[in-house]
Nucleic acid binder design. Structure first.
Length: 464
RNA sequence: GACCCUAUCGUCCAGCGGUUAGGACACCGCCCUUUCACGGCAGUAACCGGGGUUCGAAUCCCCGUAGGGUCGCCA
């Protein structure tokens, strides 16, 4: 402690261990911009061997809810952004990691009261109308920012009229600017990485830190994420909520990859990566200064690439869950069959939500394959029945039921009958899957197996 | 009204005084494949405008314009 009785603030030198934080308010959902802020904090912590703190800013504003807290925690976990310090559950009084708690601001009232008294005692704050006001500096404040450089923020004309601002409301609840600074101070935060929407207000924060007798942390204000048309992203906009990615069946790896490249890039780093791979390359200086626009098409591209590269066992696991969500229970089938079946669709790189459409036929009863009307009209015309029957006979006579043999057999028959390969491929596909599109025909037949294929072929060629 | 940030293909990024302004997504054509895709090859497409500085500006400065943000007893 120093002469004034304060706990000495952590010296901010280059060698000081980095401590960053993500401090969301639980007011509804996890915004994609917030997710990226969390990601950048996570990357910086990992890159520097520092500590990533999660703090819930739930000061009473009548908008907070338990559900919103849970959404934030589950969203971060889904993205794989693990925090070193913070709550372990959504319970404000529950278990935590770290020695700087509580990590819910609603449980830190005594800290704020103590700090408010400190400011009153030092003459930086005064009471008026039942509220506590901060004696704001009238001089322009220089905000040192690692992304945009030094920003000089003078008072606006409105502020010049009445520069002081409220620290603690008349109802006793401290405001954001106050608790945010106090907590960053108490928690030893060294780098504040947050959205650019906070840049202007940082003047208040810098002044507050100084009033406490310490230098502010380093700031890095990152550009915002806007809609494709440049407008602000709000809750209803497509892609605004992290939960929507879970629902739509995106892989978290894809979302992370896409978000990493929204406002950040490094030289000689391939565009496709995992957060673990680029963490060592993450520098705040490489953060872009201009706002970015959210392009779902590009996110889809990243999903496509990551889905195809996913480890087979993980792909199967994700696929089984996606099917179950769609009402298809695969548990009655042999696990080997289930994985072989799902794996025939992996190369397609489809969203998990679309997986049932590509693989449901594997799990349908042979006499209950549902035919897409258009597919049936197009490929199962009466004229196709004789060739289909012939194909069934050839398949049945096959010694081995593998993709290579199946393909050779089908093509040989086509040549023999003097028809195009498609004249056999299409009816066969529709007879076995009900659809015109799907996994590679020969591989899908191999997985279905001799018996199922025979039954399905027989079903259409006899029923017509 | 004031203040702050920003400005390269439609989108995301490269470029950091001298480049035929590069890559990715999207789009288009061809090849491959007689499922949809993948893949291969090629292509369309950008330095917001105006002044400076300089032998030389996408790169530096100024003005304008545009977009975004902030100015609460919201966070």
């Amino acid at each position: 402690m120093d002469d004034a009785g304060r706990v000495p603030y952590f010296p901010r030198t280059m060698s000081a261990p980095v401590r960053v934080r993500f401090a969301p308010s639980p007011t509804g959902y996890l915004h994609v911009g917030g997710a990226r802020t969390a990601l950048f904090n996570w990357l910086y912590a990992r890159r520097t061997g520092g500590t990533f703190v999660l703090r819930i800013e739930d000061t009473d504003n009548a908008r907070n809810s338990q559900a919103a807290v849970d959404v934030i925690l589950s969203g971060l976990r889904w993205l794989g952004l693990d925090w070193d310090e913070g709550p372990l559950t959504g319970d404000a009084d529950g278990p935590v990691n770290g020695a700087h708690g509580p990590y819910f601001q609603s449980r830190r009232g005594d800290v704020y009261r103590r700090r408010a008294e400190e400011l009153k005692a030092s003459g930086h704050a005064y009471e008026k109308d039942g509220a506590l006001f901060f004696r704001m500096t009238r001089e322009p404040v220089t905000i040192p920012d690692l992304v945009v450089g030094d920003v000089v923020r003078p008072l606006t004309d409105r502020e010049a009229l009445d520069p002081d601002w409220v620290l603690v409301r008349s109802d006793g609840v401290p405001v954001f600017h106050f608790v945010n600074v106090v907590d960053d101070l108490e928690m030893g935060i060294t780098h504040v990485i947050r959205g650019e929407d906070h840049l202007s207000n940082t003047a208040k924060h810098v002044a507050l830190f100084r009033a406490f007798g310490v230098e502010p942390p380093k700031y890095a204000h990152i550009p915002l994420i806007l809609n494709l048309d440049g407008s602000k992203m709000s809750k209803r906009d497509q892609g605004a909520s992290v939960q929507s990615y879970v629902d739509e069946g995106y892989l978290p790896e894809a979302v992370i990859n896409y978000l990493s490249l929204l406002g950040w890039s490094a030289k000689d780093v391939p565009e496709l990566f995992t957060k673990e791979e680029i963490a060592p390359r993450f520098e705040l200086a490489d953060i872009n200064r201009a706002n970015a626009r959210f392009d779902l098409k590009k996110l889809e591209h990243f999903h496509f690439e990551h889905a195809r590269r996913l480890a087979p066992d993980r792909f199967v696991q994700a696929g089984v869950e996606a099917l179950l969500k769609a009402g298809i229970d695969t548990s009655a089938f042999p696990t080997g069959y289930v994985s072989s079946a799902l794996l025939t669709a992996q190369e397609k790189g489809k969203l998990l939500k679309e997986l049932p459409t590509w693989t449901d036929f594997y799990f349908a009863a042979d006499d209950a394959v549902v035919f897409d009307p258009e597919a049936k009209a197009k490929a199962l015309a009466p004229a196709a029945m004789p060739v289909l029957q012939k194909l069934g006979e050839r398949f049945a006579a096959l010694p081995g039921f593998d993709a290579v043999s199946l393909e050779a057999t089908l093509k040989a028959l086509a040549t023999e009958l003097g028809v195009k390969v498609g004249a056999l491929v299409q009816p066969c596909r529709v007879a076995c899957t009900g659809r015109l599109v799907g996994p590679s025909l020969y591989h899908l037949l191999e997985v279905l197996g001799r018996e199922k294929v025979a039954k399905r072929l027989a079903r259409v060629s006899t029923e017509g």
